[in-house]
Design a protein around this nucleic acid. Structure first.
Length: 456
RNA sequence: GAGGUUGUAGCUCAGCUGGUUAGAGCGCUGGAUUGUGGUUCCAGAGGUCGCGGGUUCGAACCCCGUCUCCCUCCCCA
């Protein structure tokens, strides 16, 4: 008995119409990246485990898919480590390779390896799938596409400004009516920890205040206490919960708060620059918001942090990014600053589906279908398709002689734009009846006229 | 990794405290209409009720296990 086939959890199949809609998203992102001077690269789906492990924190390591060693390599299993109860080490001996978890760390590896072949600042974009052994949920998959653009080898804030523009342009082009680019700076977060006298608790503190809008002020305080942050430090941090007003007002309030922290003030200065330049350049549809509680982002971020949320949909952030000063240092090339962003194509896809924002002909699968009236007529149509295909028109002949009704229905299902009808009388006259499937309008054309219609 | 929930036709879902041959809408196939679709009317096909085990005279329904979906936490795109 054959079992019903299935696919692993958190993965999806895509039908032609779905692929068409996804391609539209990828192309939109790609075209904007290109206009900002980014060039595409690709890296392998899997890397050496050592390249990935330890780069995303403890939580991240747990979510990395490992690839089991095969054949003779199985013998490398470190049974001593297993006996000693050292499971991570045992796991590493079993799996020397792992599926990439994001595109940024493999990119850092790529830059270090090819540093002598690249000119800096190096700007690349990369659109490839990544894998996470996460528990699937709405908008969370085990396999999904990231569309990254990064610049490495420059600490110019021009790039932060550019990335804000890119977020705005891509999402505006995709027709998303409203969205907010949240922006913060890791240096401001460091400053907060410094001012509170708990610098070494930076990560705990930032993770806690990040949850402010979710668990409220009391929840954050509870979490800080649980993490062992002193009451005194909590008292210093508390005023942050009340920060409000315009971006300028927030900056002023934070500047006062961080008065004693050089790092913190540097963060304010950077952020202010980016916000001012963004104002100068203007934005299409995006709203930009300085959010002190924005702390997300991997622990390798050191400067700006970005996150983009679409209005009026229940969906996590659709884009993220930030500056990392020493990611390549992990692979032996230090002193190189990078900044980058990522579009979560699968979440954007879900949002566009939910809001039904695709242009009408996104999923048209064929431009022109020749109806089949019989062997002689169909063979004549085959000759017409050959000529049309040579000039780039996608077209085909219905494969068998069937009822018109059936052939039209087939054309309809495939969202064919035009149906060409060549029956006995057209064949005699040397003409083609061309029907526009959308308007229902039908015209009799010569072969030359047909060509002219499609060549533009 | 922790907790909760769901699974019945291709899709969306009904199915009473366990009781004959498991239903609807949409879709599909054929016909009304032998050169015109997306509207209408008629007919038809399609399901080992997620999978495995148990209780029972009898299980879609009750129990156990397992997988999956969705949700909360964790974390993130």
């Amino acid at each position: 008995m054959v079992q019903k086939p299935a696919i692993p959890k958190g993965t999806r199949d895509f039908l032609p119409g779905e692929v068409a809609r996804r391609t539209y998203i990828f192309n939109t992102i790609r075209s904007v990246f290109k206009t900002y001077g980014f060039a595409p690269i690709e890296t392998p789906s899997f890397e050496l485990s050592t390249t990935l492990l330890g780069k995303y924190g403890e939580e991240g390591d747990r979510l990395i898919f490992r690839i089991l060693n095969s054949g003779e390599k199985m013998k490398k299993a470190d049974l001593e480590a297993l006996q000693a109860g050292n499971l991570p080490r045992f796991a590493n001996s079993l799996a020397e390779k792992a599926l990439r978890y994001d595109l940024t760390v493999p990119f850092a590896r790529f830059v270090v390896q090819h540093q002598n072949e690249l000119s800096f600042p190096f700007k690349r974009y990369q659109i490839q799938p990544v894998w996470r052994a996460d528990r699937p949920q709405h908008g969370r998959y085990q396999e999904f596409y990231q569309c990254d653009a990064d610049v490495i080898g420059s600490d110019s804030l021009f790039y932060e400004v550019d990335f804000v523009q890119i977020f705005d342009q891509v999402l505006t082009k995709l027709g998303i009516p409203g969205f907010t680019i949240k922006i913060n700076n890791r240096k401001i977060l460091s400053g907060i920890a410094e001012v509170s006298g708990e610098s070494e608790r930076l990560v705990d503190i930032t993770i806690a205040i990040d949850k402010l809008d979710k668990i409220g002020e009391e929840g954050v305080i509870r979490e800080l206490k649980e993490k062992g942050v002193s009451d005194q430090a909590i008292a210093v941090i508390s005023p942050l919960f009340a920060i409000s007003g315009s971006n300028e007002e927030r900056l002023d309030q934070m500047r006062a708060f961080l008065n004693s922290s050089e790092t913190g003030l540097k963060g304010i200065e950077e952020l202010e620059y980016v916000l001012n330049q963004t104002k100068e350049l203007g934005l299409e549809r995006a709203e930009v918001e300085f959010d002190v509680t924005l702390a997300r982002g991997l622990n390798y971020y050191t400067g700006a942090i970005f996150e983009v949320k679409v209005h009026d949909v229940k969906m996590g952030s659709v884009c993220g990014g930030g500056r990392y000063d020493d990611l390549t240092g992990l692979f032996g090339l230090s002193g190189v600053s990078g900044v980058g962003i990522s579009f979560g194509a699968d979440r954007i896809y879900d949002v566009l589906n939910e809001l039904n924002l695709y242009p009408a002909d996104t999923d048209a699968m064929l431009t022109l279908l020749f109806a089949n009236f019989g062997e002689k007529e169909a063979e004549y149509c085959m000759k017409l398709t050959k000529k049309l295909r040579l000039v780039g028109v996608d077209c085909e002949v219905y494969p068998v002689t069937a009822k018109m009704q059936k052939q039209f229905k087939y054309a309809d299902n495939r969202r064919v734009k035009f149906v060409a009808i060549v029956g006995e009388s057209e064949l005699e006259k040397g003409t083609i009846q061309l029907k526009n499937m959308e308007s229902g309008e039908q015209k009799e054309l010569t072969e030359t006229e047909l060509h002219q219609l499609f060549i533009k």
